[in-house]
Design a binder for these strands. Structure first.
Lengths: 214, 214
DNA sequence: GCTATGAATTCTGTATACAAAATACTTCAG
DNA sequence: CTGAAGTATTTTGTATACAGAATTCATAGC
């Protein structure tokens, strides 16, 4: 048994994010601290600390006297966050070592079309996409930027479970990823950045198309 | 007496940020929770909640068993954060209503050279700069983006008090702000964005030049 | 039957308590 | 005098306690 040498608040935060991925929490619903703490087998103190962290990531909202609730979702917010991530990843790409980008380009190309199991669970598929973007940013030395990207992406987890499965958008994403990789292979960083921004814009709309109204 | 209808953690956070501006906390030093809580006249519980929020903003670091400490500063991190803010403000500008930008351009121009008292305290001067940038972004409808900018800027407060007073850089900043405003007046948004990025890059170096080594 | 009022309950926000980890201090061997 | 070992102290991380705000439920008046 690996004894956890990490604050409970961090472990709780991770567990809550995992449950968020599974769609356990509906957007807009209140958090009952006592009930959730009991369910997790911890006291309210570290739970509240985790909730405050999640509120800082805009996954939760807090209202005086009314506690925490899961932040409502909206197509507008999703687009907003995607445009932020497009800008941040573009900056990360622009401030990466061109030689390193050229070196990882083949891996990016291969990973783009190396689908996971086509009938895999949504979580697996999303992780595959994350993996690709992580590799893309692996040469960025701006620690604060990578940190920020991670934080902003965490908030996107509220949307993952809302989407219905669909293969076509995944293939388009793979194509766009491959295009970015090829630009990097050519050493054409500006083109890669443009393609990345396009990918985020298209990816946002494809994702939204997979989310039913209301 | 205005009775505060806001969680203590928020009030504590603000008080700590104010003290940070005053340079009360040296980077890298530990936070003694009990002592600080006593000084603020609150218990450790809301204090810790504020500390956790500040850790989320990268103003503090936390280590298991060792509590919180003020995050170390470095020229590299300062440049990293400035480049992030350049990208985020550029995005905000690009996603603003051009008509609104043209409308506020005269105000931006006037505010650029309307110095505060030349011998004013550093805090006043910094606030003047913030005011200009806030006005610049006032037409941005991307709420999440504005939120993110605010959060990232909060972390920059760790650097404000390290700089020695100097008029020349302020004048250059004013010139660059005026240049941005004129581009907006011309309706040339791309040029304004380029000028804004230049302003952030130059501004970062000017600020660093005002910070003594070690 | 519906609204308003008030009591009862639930829940949050803050304070306090306590155990374990980390740090500081003391003592002793070499 | 230096370093190690063991003890005392401090400090954190988590649990519990408690007061007050928010909500719910019941009752009374129209």
């Amino acid at each position: 048994m690996a004894i956890e040498r990490r604050p409970l608040r961090d472990q709780i935060r991770e567990e809550l994010l995992k449950r968020l991925d599974r769609g356990d929490f509906a957007a807009g619903t209140d958090v009952n601290e006592a009930a959730l703490a009991a369910e997790l087998g911890v006291s309210r103190t570290p739970l509240r600390e985790a909730l405050i962290t999640l509120a800082g990531e805009r996954i939760l909202e807090s209202n005086q006297g009314r506690g925490f609730r899961f932040a409502p979702v909206s197509r507008q917010e999703f687009r907003e966050v995607c445009s932020i991530l497009a800008a941040l990843e573009s900056l990360a790409l622009e401030s990466s070592d061109p030689a390193h980008l050229k070196r990882i380009a083949p891996d990016l190309l291969q990973l783009a079309h190396g689908f996971p199991d086509p009938v895999a669970e949504q979580q697996i598929i999303d992780r595959h996409d994350d993996e690709w973007h992580d590799l893309l940013l692996s040469g960025c030395t701006n620690e604060r930027l990578l940190d920020l990207v991670t934080g902003v992406k965490a908030g996107m987890r509220r949307y993952a479970h809302l989407a219905v499965a669909d293969d076509a958008p995944l293939r388009r994403d793979a194509d766009e990823h491959a295009a970015i990789a090829r630009h990097l292979l050519d050493g054409d960083l500006p083109a890669a950045v443009v393609a990345l921004k396009t990918n985020w814009a298209n990816g946002a709309e494809r994702m939204l198309a997979r989310i039913p109204e209301e």
